[in-house]
Design a protein around this nucleic acid. Structure first.
Length: 616
RNA sequence: GUUCCUGUGGACAAAUUGGUUAAGUCGUUGCUCUUUCACAGCAAAGAUUGCGGGUUCGAGCCCCGUCAGGAAUACCA
């Protein structure tokens, strides 16, 4: 039975005073974490959260944070992905101590550049009898898997099946030698022992036990000479002296293999501690299926289904649509209706499998697109439109708000504080307050966080962030004016761009007047009073909010009018809507001339709107 | 199918480690403030802690069973 070391993650921190007494400083060079993304596309929200937790823990412990690029799969390599990852992390304000482009004593930090390193360890495994050469081709294995599947069984390359397969365990030494000398393609597979238990002591999950008989003989070295994730990861973590592995829960099932590897390579005593993070889940179907969108959503899903399964005939389309609208009827039980039953034909089966993976489970990049929220920190432009996504930044989120939101997906400080600056978060963070259950992505909450940050930020900062967007729209305004507009709008929106979208009237003439109020209350005879008031205000020595308000009050009292008689029409004239910032502040910001212009164009327009109502 | 993980109001979650009345936040609804919207403040609705047993004076927490959801099951990471 193999046990990973089970020291407390906070051990060094907790007892640092003792180490200090003995003048041993374990903290700084002991705690080393790594964030190890794969450059196969944009870094999604789950990866960002993993990076965050790695960052928080290292900062908290005064450790070292390493960025390692895991690009061992050449077929999935996407140019630009690494740059995207770097830029995302920079935007979010997470700094790394070592990594590509940063430097460090343990480089190189791209696995493709470390290729020559791994063969030696694979050979070690062979030499110690813990791995073997496998000559089965990918095609043979695929065929085998299909054959098993047709019998409703699952093929696994393991301690049983390897005895029947084409490898150095079944072939004679002579045959193996010949094959190797001939340059026949081969992989090196881990020889998982029989009848043992591997015990993992996970920081967030506690003790997890795997029986080796359930484990497959994973490939360590691929046919192209590249290591798989499993080998490269363990070798690099060891060579880079990683102390804690904080990664997503999807890795938990293969952790047993990793523990085995540490042991076979003789590194078990320095094996890092594992912390497997809960997954970030899609919003549940019943939260986003509405009367309004369910038809569009169904069509979209069916489109994607046919896109993905080109072999299925289009004639199945109406059936698929019908099925979807049927399961959307009762949105509470969508997932349970996706169970495959015996009477389902192949099409139905394929459809159900597709829907299940798209309506439940891990949050995926498609979801964002489909449901209208971002899943990536920054926009990503892929080769096709389908592979391009809008990021949190482009949605108008502030990096700190995104981090704050993400931090709470799977962790909480145990206090009632919700808004944390990055340093505060570092201070409050600990691995043992990470939860075990999957956390559901909730865009409403994300927006709330962003709004809190918007309100909290000073106007000057927001103005700087807004300037590029203002420029893009070709609005010509002074900083002073923008500052005023931002001050009035920021607590009325969730994201930055909304300031100039819903508050467009600060930058250009009103596009449309809200008709309801005009129909209800507009009285052409009132115009004289409104114009009267306008003139009185224009004659004030300074066109300033408080003065305007005082003067208006006087006027209304003198003429027996109420606020309600006047305000809505001024408001609609200036902004097109009855919602929005305080009227007099808006007037001050817009300025005397602009206000006059807008009032004079609005009143005749109101008459017209009013006339259409009386006519109809 | 198999292995592993996880179940606390609609969502995120707390619960001093077995202690009595199950926090708080988002969302929803209402009230206050306000010319409107928003912000802020206050309040309400919403939970037999997935379900069934057991242990115990006492169970969200421990044990057994069961159901549901998720992950993994590639020469991907």
């Amino acid at each position: 039975m193999y046990r990973c070391n089970d020291t407390n993650p906070n051990f060094a921190a907790r007892y640092s005073h003792i180490f200090l007494i003995f003048n041993i400083n374990l903290m700084n060079d002991k705690i080393r974490l790594r964030f190890a993304p794969s450059p196969t596309g944009a870094l999604h929200i789950g990866g960002v959260r993993t990076a965050l937790y790695n960052y928080l823990f290292t900062q908290k412990m005064g450790g070292t944070l390493i960025l390692r690029i895991e690009d061992t799969d050449q077929t999935r390599y996407v140019p630009g992905a690494e740059a995207y990852i770097l830029e995302s992390l920079r935007w979010l304000g997470m700094e790394f101590d070592e990594g590509p482009g940063i430097g460090g004593d343990f480089g190189p930090y791209r696995q493709s550049e470390r290729k020559s390193l791994y063969g030696k360890y694979a050979q070690n495994l062979i030499d110690s009898g813990n791995a073997y050469y496998a000559f089965d081709t990918a095609e043979e294995l695929t065929a085998m898997r299909e054959a098993y599947e047709s019998r409703k069984e699952t093929f696994r390359y393991d301690g049983i099946t390897r005895q029947e397969l084409n490898n150095s365990l079944t072939l004679s030494a002579e045959e193996v030698k010949t094959k190797l000398e001939n340059g026949d393609p081969y992989t090196i597979r881990l020889k998982v022992p029989r009848d043992e238990e591997v015990v993992i002591n996970d920081i967030v999950r506690g003790e997890v036990v795997f029986r080796t008989n359930e484990l497959d003989d994973k490939v360590m070295l691929k046919g192209d000479g590249m290591p798989t994730y499993h080998l490269a990861n363990i070798v690099d973590d060891h060579l880079m002296k990683i102390s804690h592995v904080v990664r997503g829960e999807e890795w938990l099932p293969s952790t047993a293999h990793h523990v085995l590897l540490y042991r076979f390579l003789g590194w078990e005593d320095t094996m890092p501690q594992f912390a497997h993070l809960p997954l970030i889940l899609k919003p549940s179907p019943d939260s986003y299926i509405t009367k309004e969108n369910k038809v569009a959503l169904a069509e979209r899903l069916v489109d994607e289904f046919f896109n993905k399964n080109e072999e299925i005939d289009q004639s199945y389309r109406s059936d698929a649509l019908a099925f979807l609208s049927q399961i959307f009827q009762d949105k509470k039980n969508v997932v349970s209706k996706l169970k495959i039953s015996k009477k389902d034909d192949d099409n139905k089966r394929a459809l159900k499998v597709f829907l299940k993976s798209n309506l439940s489970g891990k949050l995926s990049k498609r979801d964002g697109d489909r449901l209208g929220f971002p899943v990536f920190p920054l926009s990503w432009v892929g080769e096709t439109k389908e592979d391009s996504f809008k990021g949190f930044r482009e949605f108008g989120f502030m990096p700190q708000a995104m981090l704050n939101f993400l931090a709470f997906l799977g962790w909480n400080p145990g206090t009632e504080q919700e808004i944390f600056s990055l340093p505060e978060m570092v201070d409050a963070f600990s691995l043992d307050r990470i939860g075990k259950a999957g956390a559901r992505f909730d865009f409403d909450k994300a927006k709330w966080f962003n709004q809190q940050y918007l309100i909290q930020s000073d106007n000057a900062t927001l103005v700087e962030l807004l300037k590029p967007m203002v420029k893009e729209k070709n609005y010509e305004v002074t900083d002073e004016y923008l500052t005023a507009a931002v001050g009035m709008m920021k607590e009325r929106v969730n994201t930055l761009p909304e300031i100039i979208e819903t508050g467009y009237y600060f930058f250009e003439p009103v596009k449309e007047y809200e008709e309801k109020m005009i129909h209800k209350k507009w009285n052409p005879d009132r115009k004289t009073a409104l114009l009267d008031l306008k003139e009185q205000l224009e004659n004030l020595p300074d066109y300033q909010a408080e003065k305007l308000e005082a003067s208006t009050k006087t006027y209304l009292e003198a003429n027996g009018l109420s606020f309600g008689d006047v305000f809505p029409f001024y408001r609609i004239a200036l902004s097109g809507t009855t919602k929005g910032p305080a009227l007099f502040e808006m007037m001050e910001a817009l300025g005397k001339a602009e206000v006059e212009k807008r009032l004079l164009t609005a009143f005749p327009a109101f008459d017209e709107v009013f006339a259409t109502k009386t006519n109809s």
